[in-house]
Design a protein around this nucleic acid. Structure first.
Length: 477
DNA sequence: GTCGGTAATC
């Protein structure tokens, strides 16, 4: 019953780095308009506008019409008299949710307020968000605005800018930012800056730079922190460079200033677990516990995923049982992991069972949950179940993203339901989800599979047209 | 302002 011999035999060694660190292929061309919003001195007071409350702003953040509303306000010269609290809280929320277009629009609105006081801290938060969203060009523009406002960038600002470049793979730009920092006396790079830089290097397989960076740090008298070590360990671990990973752990322990923490534990356990080396994973887990470290919810989620991937469902179960006994509440991630494991194994019954349990425990499914479900149903040809998921999703307030639409469009495509596919494509537009290359590729493939070559060609042209219009928007104004 | 856990459709 329990297939437990799958551990090391199913180990798949990947050949190139690029397959393991897929970059975001679907970067949309962003509007640059916010950058053009001129800072205005306070205009005429328009009384009706002050009734904008925090509630209004945060509500409209969530709806399509509202984002247009914000944009309209951001572009209108009338909206210079909003309450600070409303604008600042709306900005906070947009940043927290990584809604970068909205955040930049609100920031444009903020800059027009008569009470606006330029602060580096605001810029740092925006830059960090842009880094997360892989928007290096926007980060660059934002930095220009900061300079145009006469602000002197702080170390944080520079570090966030470096991070925004590095996370998108613009390592040359990140390095030149580092050089800029070195030339400004009060903005010297510190251990944060270097840890971030190392992280970016490993994500883009520039392991050759790690040694150089560490040498430079040592030359400048900057000591590695626990985070620095964890970052390097994670980099080697994700690249399956296990020997270097363990060597780094040894360095860390020998440094005597940086002790392994729960991040180190999770990183190592995850590296071995993800590569199917269950025995090593367990060995390190036990070892870290002996060192006195305590696992957390992420540890358990990692163990569940690793056992599930290895087909060791009994062990997976023992983790969930242990969690229950120790009152570690499962999170959305826990359920998503279990659901995905059973979905990939084609075990629809158990998958459904956990989905039910998830809802029963009051844990809200998200876009990731639905992606896994749709994929699993589609794989075994249960398209009626996909219909039911779609209905559920449409009647809920779950935020649907482009990957979800791609997933469900692909499901209907594979089922040969071209009509439904088109409907969903239109629905994407209504929900302001931008179709990306994968959306188009999925639909074109489905059309071709149905022998609808004309429709496929039409879509190819549409795709090109979309690209061009975005290009125009970029260079326009 | 830094490190670890979920889906990812072509």
């Amino acid at each position: 019953m329990e297939p437990s011999a799958l551990t090391l035999t199913s180990l798949r060694l990947s050949t190139t780095c690029s397959t393991k660190f897929p970059r975001d292929q679907n970067q949309t061309n962003p509007p640059k308009s916010y950058a053009q919003i001129p800072k205005r001195s306070s205009g005429p007071v328009s009384k009706g506008l002050q009734k904008d409350s925090k509630k209004d702003l945060s509500r409209i953040l969530r709806t399509d019409a509202a984002i247009k509303g914000i944009a309209r306000k951001a572009n209108s010269r009338k909206y210079t008299q909003l309450w600070p609290k409303a604008v600042l809280e709306a900005l906070d929320e947009a940043i927290r949710e990584n809604q970068w277009q909205t955040a930049l629009k609100i920031f444009g609105l903020l800059r027009k307020q008569h009470w606006y006081d330029a602060r580096c801290q605001t810029y740092t938060r925006l830059l960090v968000m842009l880094g997360k969203c892989r928007q290096p060009e926007q980060a660059s523009l934002l930095f220009e605005i900061l300079l145009s406002e006469g602000l002197r960038p702080t170390v944080d600002v520079y570090t966030a800018l470096l991070s925004a470049y590095g996370q998108s793979g613009f390592l040359d730009k990140a390095l030149s930012t580092l050089d800029d920092m070195k030339s400004v006396s009060e903005c010297k790079p510190d251990v944060y800056t270097y840890s971030i830089l190392i992280n970016c290097c490993t994500k883009f397989c520039h392991f050759d730079l790690i040694g150089q960076i560490l040498a430079e740090m040592s030359f400048l008298g900057i000591e590695c922190s626990t985070v620095t070590y964890n970052t390097i360990i994670d980099g080697y671990g994700k690249a399956e460079m296990f020997e270097l990973m363990e060597n780094t752990l040894t360095d860390m322990i020998e440094s005597e200033t940086c002790l392994p923490d729960v991040f180190t534990l999770n990183t190592l356990v995850g590296a071995y677990g993800n590569s199917g080396q269950i025995e090593k994973m367990e060995k390190w887990y036990d070892e870290f516990l002996l060192m006195g470290l305590k696992p957390d919810i992420k540890t358990f989620n990692i163990l569940i995923k690793s056992y599930g991937k290895a087909g060791m469902y009994e062990k997976m179960r023992s983790v969930t049982d242990y969690m229950e006994k120790r009152f570690f509440s499962p999170t959305t991630v826990t359920f998503n992991t279990v659901i995905d494991v059973f979905g990939k194994a084609g075990n629809i019954e158990r998958m459904d069972e956990y989905f039910k349990k998830m809802k029963h425990q009051g844990i809200k499914p998200n876009s990731i949950t639905y992606c896994s479900l749709v994929r699993a149903y589609s794989k075994v040809g249960l398209i009626t179940k996909v219909d039911s998921i779609l209905r559920q999703v449409e009647n809920s307030d779950v935020i649907l993203d482009t990957p979800f639409f791609n997933c469900i469009i692909s499901a209907y495509g594979q089922a040969g339901d071209v009509k439904k596919m088109r409907e969903l494509f239109l629905e994407m537009k209504e929900r302001e989800c931008k179709p990306d290359n994968i959306t188009f590729a999925t639909m074109i493939q489905a059309y071709n599979a149905q022998g609808m070559t004309e429709a496929a060609e039409k879509l190819v042209n549409k795709m090109i047209a979309t690209k061009e219009s975005t290009g125009t928007r970029l260079t326009g104004h």
